[in-house]
Amino acid sequence: MQRVNMIMAESPGLITICLLGYLLSAECTVFLDHENANKILNRPKRYNSGKLEEFVQGNLERECMEEKCSFEEAREVFENTERTTEFWKQYVDGDQCESNPCLNGGSCKDDINSYECWCPFGFEGKNCELDVTCNIKNGRCEQFCKNSADNKVVCSCTEGYRLAENQKSCEPAVPFPCGRVSVSQTSKLTRAETVFPDVDYVNSTEAETILDNITQSTQSFNDFTRVVGGEDAKPGQFPWQVVLNGKVDAFCGGSIVNEKWIVTAAHCVETGVKITVVAGEHNIEETEHTEQKRNVIRIIPHHNYNAAINKYNHDIALLELDEPLVLNSYVTPICIADKEYTNIFLKFGSGYVSGWGRVFHKGRSALVLQYLRVPLVDRATCLRSTKFTIYNNMFCAGFHEGGRDSCQGDSGGPHVTEVEGTSFLTGIISWGEECAMKGKYGIYTKVSRYVNWIKEKTKLT
């Protein structure tokens, strides 16, 4: 034993070699072989497995989906700052455009905790909710729209109204504003409101030439003092309507412009014939205590009207009353817009006519005020429907199939267009061939041609 100890002390290297040989010859039971080890760690190889990531292109799944990435790591994937920024906006807080917040056709661009709407022409605001041009839906104005110097929408209202708090709607500024039905039992019968379409306001006024200088022999019209197929109006439903009495009662109609003036057809009036105007009328054979009678003290036909040349060209006249009318729910003026808007309103496509005229061709006159909704007829169809001249200051309205029309005794009465609950004068009943005849239409004086003249002559002093 002493000898062994001496050998170990003198030859430590020998001992180490012996131990190493023993270990190498022993069977290893701690580690699995290569094949079995792979069965336990069965993990798919990654895209760049075996390579240094710093030297390969980034992978979106590896960089940002398996674990949260930084902007720089995302930049490695896209290799483009702009594309990385677009991805980053949604990656950080989701897609803010998912709810489609942009209105009126706006395009949404996502941002971090926010979004941006790219608005089409005519709109602005956070969600493109603000109209900035009158060309689109009248700028959301209830009545009139004008573009300011910086191309912003400025709404306005006709006389007797003021802008509401929203700067879009119009509200009454006087007790009985024009064009409004205020009798409670008839307010439910107000005709369907007309909503502004998209309009090209630059070209809204037709490029028409008034044929002022045409000389033409007097034409022989049949029954051209021209509501057939209409309905009984309720008291106060058309408070701007008046009836004219002269040699015979209810020979023509008219509309209240203001307390002192009536507008009617020029062919209705004769110099030297006494005319009485009755406002607030409903049943011409009954006294309903809503009527107001006034005498006409002055007749002003349009300066281009000449019955000797043509009885229905420039067929418009103004009547001055001896005493002002007292405005109330049964006696209310009709609204008159400017030339541009009167023309736009007419193009809405349908209007209402009213009167006490004959209820059928050569038949009896109506006792109760009649009204009828009539569609506008395109000019080409209008011209083809008659052998008589249709001037540019006239328009056609009615039904091709016949059966409904204005008729004798309705002449001078109103053709009105309702705009968001307020009625505007767009025409004056003038003439036609018979009444409600198939293929024939009622012919009306186009008020847009005469609004400046009306307003100039009827100013209240």
Score class of each variant (00 low, 15 high):
8 M>T: 14
419 V>K: 10
411 S>P: 10
131 D>T: 06
121 F>H: 08
202 V>E: 09
354 S>Y: 11
36 N>L: 05
39 K>G: 11
404 R>M: 03
244 L>A: 01
204 S>G: 05
258 N>I: 01
252 C>G: 00
67 E>L: 08
354 S>V: 15
93 D>A: 13
458 T>E: 01
130 L>M: 10
240 W>Q: 00
155 C>Q: 00
229 G>N: 06
104 N>V: 04
175 P>V: 07
275 I>V: 08
57 Q>I: 12
458 T>Y: 01
300 I>L: 05
267 H>Y: 02
326 V>W: 11
9 A>C: 08
51 K>G: 09
366 A>T: 08
98 E>S: 12
203 N>A: 08
230 G>T: 07
258 N>F: 01
339 K>D: 14
83 R>F: 08
152 K>V: 12
244 L>V: 06
348 F>T: 14
351 G>Q: 04
290 T>F: 04
172 P>C: 03
422 T>W: 01
61 E>S: 15
198 D>R: 09
148 S>N: 06
429 I>W: 14
119 C>D: 02
55 F>T: 15
410 D>Y: 10
144 F>Y: 04
434 E>T: 12
418 E>V: 06
199 V>W: 12
457 K>D: 02
371 Y>A: 13
386 T>Q: 11
75 R>W: 05
135 N>F: 13
375 P>T: 12
430 S>T: 14
444 Y>E: 01
11 S>R: 12
334 I>H: 00
446 K>G: 15
143 Q>P: 00
165 E>M: 10
365 S>T: 14
218 T>P: 11
208 E>N: 12
18 C>E: 01
444 Y>A: 03
162 R>Y: 11
247 K>I: 10
28 C>W: 00
22 Y>F: 12
110 D>K: 15
97 C>R: 03
143 Q>Y: 01
161 Y>V: 01
336 I>L: 11
379 R>P: 15
232 D>Q: 08
114 S>A: 12
381 T>H: 12
451 V>A: 14
363 G>P: 11
215 T>W: 06
197 P>A: 08
149 A>R: 07
380 A>V: 12
69 C>I: 04
202 V>D: 10
2 Q>N: 10
332 T>V: 14
280 G>P: 02
379 R>H: 15
207 A>I: 09
77 V>N: 15
143 Q>K: 00
232 D>Y: 08
289 H>W: 08
280 G>V: 01
42 N>I: 09
55 F>C: 14
172 P>H: 05
22 Y>E: 01
294 R>P: 01
111 D>A: 07
3 R>L: 13
314 H>W: 11
181 V>L: 11
51 K>M: 05
109 K>H: 12
293 K>A: 05
99 S>E: 11
284 I>A: 08
17 I>D: 00
185 Q>D: 14
312 Y>K: 07
162 R>L: 08
256 I>F: 00
111 D>P: 05
417 T>M: 04
415 H>T: 01
174 V>S: 07
84 T>I: 05
250 A>V: 08
435 C>P: 05
212 D>G: 08
184 S>F: 12
411 S>R: 10
266 A>W: 01
39 K>E: 09
171 E>Y: 09
41 L>D: 15
94 G>K: 09
183 V>L: 08
225 T>H: 08
271 T>H: 10
337 A>K: 01
16 T>N: 02
93 D>W: 05
226 R>A: 04
62 R>D: 04
216 Q>G: 04
340 E>A: 13
260 K>E: 02
438 K>D: 14
351 G>C: 05
249 D>A: 12
178 C>W: 00
86 E>G: 15
138 N>R: 12
303 H>T: 11
235 P>D: 04
104 N>C: 02
184 S>V: 11
438 K>N: 03
119 C>E: 03
136 I>F: 11
140 R>G: 08
70 S>H: 12
2 Q>P: 10
114 S>E: 11
447 V>P: 03
188 K>G: 10
190 T>S: 12
247 K>A: 11
410 D>G: 03
402 G>L: 13
103 L>N: 12
287 T>S: 12
298 R>Q: 05
171 E>W: 06
368 V>F: 15
226 R>P: 07
416 V>P: 00
